[in-house]
């Protein structure tokens, strides 16, 4: 009985803290750290502690699948907006090229306390760079986060560039860097882990007109982390 009342009391400050958290304004800079991988339009989302754009080890939502397979963030935007999130859509106004940065300036998070970021990696079948529900510090300052490359687990990584970007359509929608490879037979037709997981990387090959893959193993691979995120809390 006594323990219970102590717990109730000690929970109070936390409740107050979350309900009356002052709205924060943040600047978010996203840098593509890779040498040869493009990011599709980014979604930078400030949301409450219960929302997730993705969760490692869980099945992708249909909205995440659309982003990871085709770079379409509209479903995630609708879903998060319905939960009261504040979003910055496509801050780079298109693709974020390798080794370049884009900034979201003055994002007013309102009552939202957590930050998530996603963008598809091209050329991949369903790879994406992701930040899952990072708690925004209340203390003003600049914070650095490194993002890994994830696999949505929704499509076999066949590495065939055929324009297939719609959900459930096998293939890579595009290779923006213009590797020019064609005629691949496909690396695989199976997706072993069908939950969101760390991407194993592209296999690729060096055969421009055949081989197993339409991506170039010397150019279109990566090591983690794939992105650097700098958050400045005002």
């Amino acid at each position: 009985m006594k323990t219970k009342s102590i717990m109730a009391l000690s929970a109070l400050p936390f409740l107050f803290a979350s309900h009356f958290a002052a709205a924060q304004t943040v600047d978010v800079t996203v840098t593509n750290l890779t040498q040869g991988i493009f990011f599709t339009p980014l979604l930078v989302s400030a949301h409450d502690s219960s929302a997730h754009l993705f969760e490692a080890g869980q099945s992708a939502t249909a909205e995440l699948q659309a982003m990871a397979e085709g770079g379409d963030i509209s479903g995630l935007v609708s879903a998060t907006t319905a939960l009261g999130a504040v979003n910055s859509e496509n801050p780079a106004a298109g693709l974020l090229a390798p080794s370049t940065s884009t900034q979201v300036s003055g994002l007013d998070t309102g009552s939202n306390t957590h930050l998530s970021i996603v963008a598809m990696l091209l050329p991949t079948n369903d790879g994406f760079a992701g930040l899952d529900s990072w708690e925004i510090p209340e203390e003003a300052g600049t914070y650095t986060i490194y993002l890994n490359g994830y696999d949505a687990g929704t499509e076999a990584n066949d590495e065939v560039v055929n324009g297939g970007g719609a959900s459930g359509v096998l293939g890579i929608p595009a290779s923006p860097g213009g590797s020019g490879e064609t005629g691949a037979s496909g690396v695989t037709t199976a997706e072993t882990n069908q939950t969101v997981h760390i991407h194993r990387g592209n296999v690729g090959d060096t055969d421009a007109t055949g081989g197993v893959s339409d991506v170039d193993s010397r150019i279109h691979r990566w090591l983690n982390p794939v992105a650097k995120v700098t958050v400045t809390v005002k």
């Binding site: 750290l33 890779t34 040498q35 040869g36 390798p98 080794s99 990387g201 296999v203 690729g204 090959d205 060096t206 081989g211 197993v212 193993s217 010397r218 150019i219 279109h220 691979r221 990566w222 090591l223 982390p225 794939v226």
Partner: peptide, 14 residues
Amino acid sequence: VSRHSGVVSNIDGY
């Protein structure tokens, strides 16, 4: 300058 993507090597089809 970027982060490195790793080497392919001749064991991996190159």
